[in-house]
């Protein structure tokens, strides 16, 4: 029981990071059908943003970096969409190769700029220590990550449900051709979606600096799991992404705790394969009379 409780904050914070990463992916993948392998490098960019800001603002780097990393990673995503991806719409395999190439280039760029060894971002003092609970301690850093993910989900939900831009985004996601015929500039919506999705990856990168070192290959550890979350949750579905991220995050961290890292991966993949046999469309599906 004690071991179970000790592992819980680890699992929850991994899930929260996965959720932040998958949120962005579920929109770029769900809305535009783009498999963006470079999404992981936007995480890395967010983490290095915090590292660079550390030289300026010291231990306040993490909170300061959150909005900055959102803008930096968002701008990188926007540029990628403008310069490359938009020329490859409707060609998923080509986009996959293209973004994979971009991902490798960005990793090498990080190696050249910051060096191959990992670097460390020092967390602010108020994030050290933890909340005592049932004889164990929940580190504040992990609680902070969890709160961050919850905040981002709520913000995205409000954006989609309440703002006119969000409504436009939903319309394009549900029926791109009809949106264009209705007078919506789908190209501009795509740009904004890419900006926001990539920006969220940047925020996830800042969160990751709280639980580990920062290296050029940071994104590659998370990108596959994030795609699994998107597929299990159902494309473009906020609720599905939340459930799948927590299911996957908790499962993998407990499996890792009770067995070892490689066996845990086997268990996670086995569970996902079994799950997709039963529900190939993911947890949540767009279901309506119009689609049946």
């Amino acid at each position: 029981m004690q071991a179970f409780l000790n592992q819980l904050p680890v699992g929850l914070s991994i899930a929260a990071v996965l959720l932040l990463i998958a949120l962005g992916l579920t929109f770029t993948f769900g809305q535009m059908g783009v498999i963006n392998m470079a999404h992981g490098e936007f995480i890395m960019a967010g983490a290095y943003t915090a590292y660079l800001l550390q030289a300026v603002v010291g231990t306040a780097a993490v909170p300061v970096a959150l909005p900055v990393a959102f803008l930096v990673a968002g701008a990188m995503g926007w540029l990628l969409e403008r310069l490359a991806i938009r020329r490859f719409y409707g060609r998923p395999l080509d986009t996959l190769l293209l973004t994979w190439g971009v991902s490798l280039v960005l990793q090498q760029l990080a190696r050249d700029l910051f060096g191959a060894p990992n670097v460390q971002v020092v967390a602010p003092g108020w994030l050290s220590g933890g909340l005592p609970l049932f004889g164990t301690q929940i580190p504040y850093a992990r609680l902070f990550i969890l709160a961050l993910a919850v905040g981002c989900v709520l913000a995205i939900w409000a954006y989609l449900a309440r703002s006119s831009q969000g409504r436009r985004m939903q319309a394009v996601m549900q029926n791109r051709r009809l949106a264009a015929i209705g007078g919506i500039n789908t190209g501009r919506v795509d740009q904004l979606t890419f900006f926001i999705g990539s920006g969220l990856a940047g925020i996830a990168g800042v969160a990751l600096t709280l639980i580990g070192p920062v290296g050029p290959a940071l994104g590659t550890y998370y990108i596959v799991d994030a795609f699994l979350v998107v597929v299990c949750g159902g494309l473009g579905r906020l609720g599905g992404a939340v459930l799948a991220a927590f299911g996957l995050g908790l499962l993998s961290s407990y499996a890792e705790f009770w067995t070892n890292a490689s066996l845990a991966k086997v268990i996670v993949f086995a569970v996902i394969i079994a799950f997709l046999q039963i529900r190939p469309q993911g947890l949540f599906v767009l279901r309506s009379r119009a689609l049946t």
């Binding site: 006119s164 436009r168 939903q170 549900q174 029926n175 051709r177 009809l178 015929i181 767009l286 119009a290």
Partner: peptide, 24 residues
């Protein structure tokens, strides 16, 4: 233009469907 097949944005409300083209 109203294309064939009475298409809507199925997950948006009726009002949302109207607002989304109005805002554009």
């Amino acid at each position: 233009y109203v294309p064939q097949g009475h298409e809507t944005f199925p997950q948006l409300s009726v009002l949302g469907n109207l607002l989304v083209t109005l805002e554009a």
